[in-house]
């Protein structure tokens, strides 16, 4: 299955997921929401990614069950396990937006008259993360070669990973922004898109389902609480 939704539909799902993740406290509701998000991804053709997300989420769910609300050592306090699961769900909701053609994103933002203060950072972010991903593998390779990656000193290892990635990320962000500016991303006039931007019937259906699911979860949360 490979249903294509409009960017606005995907944005709505992200916003609704963020609000649910922020409000839901019941573990059962969080786990079922994970199932709902998986269906949302699978119908858009992200089957393989869904399996990966579910495996990672599964690991953290098991860790939470093992920890019994006490956390696992100083490295994984309960709050960390609680947060990671929720962050992963937000990433799942954002998955269909990652890798979208930038022209489509910019054109939709222009169409809905989104302020540049929101539209431009979101457009940069969509490109930024895939670009930075390859930097991580180079950092890990170099750390292994220099024998600086050690489980005995996890905080040092973390610092060695984060430092170059932050510096490189800021440089990539600057270069990406310079490239985009020199190619007219800030043009205040009309932006077009080589793909048709249409809010179709399937988008309406998806939006209605997403809103209904969100309302249902809010009601259930109040009931459970």
């Amino acid at each position: 299955m490979n249903i294509k939704f409009d960017f606005r539909t995907k944005l709505l799902v992200i916003v609704l997921t963020m609000s649910l993740v922020a409000v839901l406290t019941s573990d059962i509701l969080i786990y079922t929401l994970l199932g709902v998000l998986s269906v949302y991804l699978i119908i858009q053709g992200f089957g393989r990614q869904t399996i990966k997300y579910l495996i990672v989420c599964g690991v953290f769910i098991v860790l939470r069950l093992i920890s019994g609300g006490q956390g696992i050592t100083i490295l994984m306090p309960e709050m960390f396990l609680f947060m990671v699961l929720r962050i992963l769900m937000m990433v799942m909701a954002a998955q269909p937006v990652i890798g979208m053609p930038p022209g489509e994103v910019v054109a939709v933002f222009k169409k809905i008259h989104a302020p540049d203060g929101i539209a431009l950072p979101v457009t940069f972010m969509l490109r930024f993360f895939p670009t930075v991903r390859s930097e991580f593998s180079d950092v890990f390779a170099s750390l292994r070669l220099r024998k600086l990656l050690s489980w005995k000193h996890p905080l040092d290892a973390m610092e060695y990973i984060v430092t170059p990635v932050i510096f490189r990320s800021s440089r990539i962000a600057e270069e990406l922004a310079a490239s985009a500016e020199s190619r007219g991303i800030s043009n205040p006039g009309k932006h077009t898109c080589r793909r048709k931007i249409e809010f179709q019937k399937r988008d309406w259906i998806m939006c209605v389902i997403a809103v209904c699911v969100t309302v249902l979860y809010f009601v259930l949360e109040r009931t459970v609480a």
């Binding site: 022209g103 895939p130 490239s179």
Partner: peptide, 21 residues
């Protein structure tokens, strides 16, 4: 590596034109 915005060639080539309407 740090001057591309799209993942597919045609989308990238069209990006500037799209920005200029």
């Amino acid at each position: 590596r740090s001057q591309f915005f799209a993942s597919i060639t045609e989308d990238e080539i069209a990006f500037g034109c799209e920005n200029y309407g």
